[in-house]
Simulated scan of single mutants.
Amino acid sequence: MTSQPGRGLLHLAAAVDLPGTFDAGPHLQLARLAEHGALDFVTLHDGFTGPGPDSLSVLSRIAPRTSRIGLVPTVTTTHTEPFHVQAAVATLDWVSRGRAGWRPDVSTGDHEARLFGRRDAAAPADLWHEAGEVVDVARKLWDSWEDGAEIRDTTTGRFIDRDKLHHVDFEGRTFSVRGPSIVPRPPQGNPVVVIDATQPYAYDVAARHADVALVAVVEPDRLAAVREGLRRRAAEHGRDPDALRVLAALRIDLGDGEYAAQPGHGGGPLPTSEGPLYRGGPVDLAELITDWHRAGAADGFHLTPLDPRRDLERLVNGTVPLLQHRALFRTFYPGSTLREHLGLARPASQYAALAGDPS
């Protein structure tokens, strides 16, 4: 189910952030609501700067109690061990039966660095370079177990085919990893990588490594230009640009009743210090999504509700049915994994390909 801009089905995702909430229950309610609307995935933000539960742990708790919705936690790659990061994300893919993604982010504050015994934080460009290396080594570690590496033969006592286990021998600027992983290859092969390409220094990391790039801009023409730039840069890195999904990132305030977009919005979002904000009703939002998608601006939308419980309910029960009626969005999940939702192929292990190369 591959979506091309202006043609076919679009992709929809939503944030389920609940600041000040420390229980997984309310997050589960939002995830189930998003699943009822057949959204591709939900995201849960995390970081070192404020109180709150670990997003990976929350979504791992939610995973067994949902069945189709993709689950994408933010994972800070600064001050964390890449080996442990990949093992945790792989575990989320296993407990969700192939619905995991992750959203790499960096920690730029000196006070956060001091929490980990470091005097100063590195420059943002260096932090995002490191984040790219973490994504790279994570994929290598997931591939370090070929498909079929687990034998589980009780009669012979063999658990693993050692010929299908590989050292990654990765050397980065700030870390090295030998491998292999301690977790078998995830159900998706590689869980989905989601990167906010509008963050400074993250653009090239997204073009090189992301399966899904989020772009927060207020004009559809500018969004389309960024999308084409990301696809072009991905091709320069040797990637198939059709394997990159670019989603418009918008904050939404759908209010308490159906009404036209507020004066000044011009039918679209306005810039704010926290990113583009769209204020209107569910019908207005459906019109904006329809217009931007048909104009080829993006492959879909990642929406962050200002009032999570109210706005997500209005999105799922108001906007989504209109998009389905226009044959722009799915009415059911045709597959079971997040890669299938996004129309992305399951990659083969890079080490299996090398092992099969007679040269």
Rank of each mutant, 00 (worst) to 15 (best):
T77S: 04
A202M: 02
G255S: 06
N190K: 08
P282T: 01
H79S: 12
A122T: 08
I69K: 04
G109C: 02
P26N: 01
E340A: 10
A210E: 10
A261S: 08
H111E: 05
P321Y: 10
A298D: 14
D211C: 07
N317V: 08
Q29E: 14
E236L: 13
L28S: 06
T272G: 14
I182S: 12
D110V: 11
I195H: 10
A353T: 07
R152E: 05
A38N: 12
A216Q: 10
S3C: 05
R310P: 00
A31Q: 06
W128H: 00
D17Y: 07
V72A: 03
D23G: 05
P263C: 00
E228V: 01
L277Y: 02
L230C: 02
V226I: 11
L92V: 13
S349T: 12
L127A: 01
H265G: 15
L323Q: 08
P104F: 06
D221P: 05
H237T: 00
F41T: 03
A352K: 10
A13P: 00
L56Y: 11
L328Y: 02
E340D: 11
G117I: 04
P358M: 09
A216F: 06
K140M: 04
L9Y: 13
H341I: 15
I151L: 13
L306R: 12
A234W: 02
I151E: 09
A90L: 05
I289E: 09
A63N: 09
W128E: 00
D169A: 05
G179V: 07
G343W: 01
P276C: 05
A213M: 14
R103D: 13
G343T: 00
A353F: 02
P220T: 11
V85K: 00
D196P: 13
A123N: 10
V246A: 08
A355C: 10
E146T: 03
P269M: 08
H27C: 07
E313Q: 12
L18M: 13
T77A: 04
G47Y: 10
M1Q: 04
S3D: 06
T337S: 09
P180F: 09
G296W: 06
D40G: 03
P282G: 07
V72Y: 03
A235F: 09
S57Q: 15
A87T: 14
L244G: 14
L214Y: 02
V58Q: 04
G8F: 05
A213Q: 11
H129E: 15
A234D: 08
L12V: 00
G109P: 00
W292A: 02
R68K: 03
G257S: 12
Y351G: 05
P180V: 08
P64M: 07
E133T: 02
R309P: 00
P200C: 09
P73D: 04
E219R: 13
Q324L: 03
G47S: 06
V89G: 03
R68H: 06
V316K: 06
L30A: 04
S273G: 15
L277G: 02
S273I: 01
H11K: 14
L247N: 10
L244K: 12
A213H: 10
Q199Y: 14
R97C: 05
A345C: 00
G20E: 04
V95S: 08
A327S: 14
D256A: 11
D136I: 01
R233L: 14
D307F: 13
G52V: 03
T43H: 00
